[in-house]
Design a protein around this nucleic acid. Structure first.
Lengths: 203, 203
DNA sequence: GCGGGAATCCGAATTGAATCCGAACAAACA
DNA sequence: TGTTTGTTCGGATTCAATTCGGATTCCCGC
């Protein structure tokens, strides 16, 4: 039964542990990340770690929340501008932002993501998916001609998942065979053509 | 230094261990999968496991090879028929086959896949991606009008990765909000519209 | 079908990481 | 200042991964 930090000192400790989690993961991978490592990097003892986290898993979960919160903090303020853009520009804007966020701090979030499926097996991407689905809905509202598109849930599911995972995979690649710009352009074209094609079909 | 099995008895042992690996993963997840578990399920002792695998990781790697080999064994014989199909039918055929394979044996491969990023961080999907890229090339050869498409590598990268990960994610979902048929149809439409759109642009 | 070396199998012993716990220290507050 | 509550510490415990030496089984030449 982990305790919740009350005093600022304790909050700093918790924060240091989460930070250290990202560091250790980047440095040593999952295998090499021991509680001692994390505690050492955080400058506290292992015992302290267990004051606030029931187990090592929970440290990873906290890291996950941290990352999701940052993604949300990036996307939400952009939303009003995004929904007014041309679809290709929206995608470009979003994906470049996403890349920058993932590569911040020497790629800590990216590194984390490549293990995320392991730490948080169930619906670990769900909040982000919901965020993007919401963006899509807002976009449709601002572009009424899109309302004719059929089966928005399925379309959204494909575009969002396909897009997110493709970008994640791409950024994790040590020697990509194509450039990030090409990838973004390709994804933009894909979505744009899809929308055009569907509208043509409907109309 | 693990030994290579020579006698049939030993081959059966190795096989039983890999089988047990899938079983244990399905039953207990990564955390719960101990060498003792695997050995028990395989009906051998832990010592025997270490005769043929340097460590637990290697058992997972063997499982990975097993799965990749099955995917290849599924796709390769289909290829001649696939390349003659309409693009939407190709996708439908491929994805239904993929689903059936992943759900075979109570979803053992699917279960495995959801942890694969952890076991085999480096290029764990690379052989499958190459397989599908090859299919795409064959397809273009059989449909010369597609040769006008620009940037085939980027297009292929997006379609293959986006498709594979979307389907994997979908199949792992406990309560999918859309049907598999919708997903497959959506992916087919996406690719078909994309190709049409690009051809229109080029022409 | 017999004997010896190679292959295989076993499971107790070792090792090291995760987790627990009770004492020591620090802050808040009266 | 004394008391209560929050925080930190690091040694003790537990449990899984891996090792190792010996027992068992197979295979091949006789």
């Amino acid at each position: 039964m982990p305790r919740t930090p009350r005093q600022p000192r304790a909050k700093a400790t918790v924060n240091a542990i989460v930070e250290a989690g990202f560091l250790s993961l980047s440095e040593h991978g999952v295998q090499g990340t021991t509680t001692r490592h994390i505690a050492d990097l955080a400058g506290v003892s292992v015992g302290s770690l267990y004051e606030y986290f029931a187990n090592k898993e929970e440290v990873f979960e906290a890291m996950h929340h941290h990352m999701v919160a940052e993604v949300v903090a990036m996307v939400e303020p952009m939303t009003p501008a995004l929904v007014k853009m041309e679809i290709r520009d929206l995608i470009k804007e979003l994906l470049f932002g996403f890349r920058d966020l993932l590569e911040k701090n020497h790629g800590r979030y990216l590194r984390y993501m490549s293990y995320a499926a392991y730490f948080a097996p169930r619906n670990y991407m769900e909040p982000i998916q919901r965020l993007l689905m919401n963006l899509l809905l807002q976009y449709v509202i601002h572009h009424p001609q899109l309302a004719r598109l059929g089966n928005l849930p399925a379309m959204g599911y494909i575009m969002i998942n396909g897009g997110v995972f493709t970008v994640l995979r791409y950024l994790s690649e040590p020697n990509p065979t194509i450039g990030f710009e090409e990838l973004v352009k390709g994804l933009g074209d894909m979505v744009a053509h899809f929308v055009e094609g569907e509208l043509r079909k409907e109309g």
